[in-house]
Write a protein that binds this DNA or RNA. Structure first.
Lengths: 238, 238
DNA sequence: TAAATAAAAGTCAAAGATACTTTTATTTTT
DNA sequence: AAAAATAAAAGTATCTTTGACTTTTATTTA
């Protein structure tokens, strides 16, 4: 068995970075426009190459610092899955070690580090499909990767991310970290609604509180500028 | 930024292979005794190196064929997680792409392919810890990797596998595939009991059926040799 | 000060889970 | 062959959780 058939692949850390859009009240994710080949000028998930003396966790934290200048703790990041199709990258063998990051803030974006542009794309539902929308274009994630316009197998990675979040909604909704350290029940319902493909007011506030109260605790009352009774503030229990 | 700092790691496919022990009525997993360095003579999970033109899924199927001579479909295998600590292997950089396989049979084991021995170890609970037991020794998975006697970070990988199985027990108990194509409710309860650290008769049969019946369907009645009413046979719905 | 608003808090019936009992189909013992 | 033992299915009653809906409360706006 010749040793040259053993793979020594490149390993890209590919990160699905989520935050919350306070205007549209929707979750959003970060895409960058690639400055270089392969897939130059295509929109893609932020990536970096794993380095020799670095764990994937550390590379993921470094990626976030490089792309958006934020030093986040590991607690807002988790491993998603590893994508290994030998043809997923063109011309070279590269594994994608996919991560997810829940940002508690929505920072201003500055292109750089291999990107000519960087934007937030909001998650919307369209006839049962998930679509990410922003910056005068949108990508339907149900389309095959090469049809969608997104680079590589990134539509599939994002789809996997969405499904993971959806599955965890009822026992460990880490996605709520995008709302910051504290949040109202309405905000939580807005996030849930996006992943369940419904609207926040289809989810009854009282029932939502009853069925999820083990997951968060009350930490005070918000001082709202809008009319109506001020909402209570909650914090995740985990 | 010098290009030599970019990692070109080896990638091992590391597989937690489960089957059911019909004597002890317990789930068991496969360990091999390593024939070569690193970690020569240590018990370890079966592994293989990813090849250049091969997906990780394909490598995992190949590993099972090499180690136990079985051609299994992808449906009995799933990706677990990727372990990337730069110090997890000695002397070289190697990622472990961990998988789980649920074997519907318990084949005879024949050492070979880098192993001087290969055995089934049954999963048992000991004061809240999980322990794997067999072949006149046992490994406590709660101990730090280097204390347990198992190679590399394999105790941590097995622990991750157990937790994944436990979390899926109530919505997609793929682990029941180790019982073969059909199974009785008692057998299912035996598997559940092992991961929930209790005994099968602590789980009420009638209630178990009611709360899990959406997951399996009746496909007939077993012809049992033992005394008592013959049990019904079930099949997974997914 | 009254109306409008938004959210919390409460109610009640239906569905689901849990502890427990009874019945049924089989083997073993007498 | 009948009775006892066994193991599993099937059934029952109570308690808990969920889900649709109503009422109350705290705030802003008219």
């Amino acid at each position: 068995m010749a040793s040259e058939i053993i793979a020594r692949p490149l390993v890209t850390i590919t990160n699905v970075i989520w935050s919350f859009n306070n205007e549209s009240h929707r979750p959003q994710l970060l895409l960058i426009k690639r400055a270089n080949d392969p897939m130059k000028n295509h929109w893609a998930l932020p990536e970096t190459l794993l380095r020799s003396e670095e764990s994937a966790d550390a590379a993921c934290i470094r990626l976030i610092d490089d792309k958006i200048g934020l030093q986040v703790p590991m607690s807002c990041t988790e491993q998603l899955a590893t994508f290994t199709d030998p043809k997923r990258a063109v011309g070279t063998r590269a594994l994608a070690l996919a991560y997810m990051t829940y940002l508690p803030v929505t920072p201003e974006l500055h292109p750089g580090y291999g990107a000519t542009d960087a934007r937030w794309f909001t998650l919307i539902a369209d006839k049962g499909d998930f679509v990410i929308n922003g910056h005068d274009q949108e990508f339907n994630l149900a389309l095959p990767a090469n049809k969608s316009g997104l680079a590589f197998d990134h539509p599939q990675i994002i789809q996997t991310a969405i499904m993971r979040i959806k599955n965890k909604l009822d026992y460990q909704p880490s996605i709520l970290r995008i709302l910051g350290p504290t949040f109202t029940l309405r905000q939580a319902r807005e996030v849930y609604a996006a992943f369940l493909q419904t609207s926040a007011d289809q989810i009854d506030n009282s029932n939502f509180k009853k069925t999820h109260q083990r997951l968060f605790r009350e930490v005070g009352t918000a001082s709202m500028k809008h009319s109506g009774r001020p909402p209570k503030l909650f914090q995740l229990n985990f």
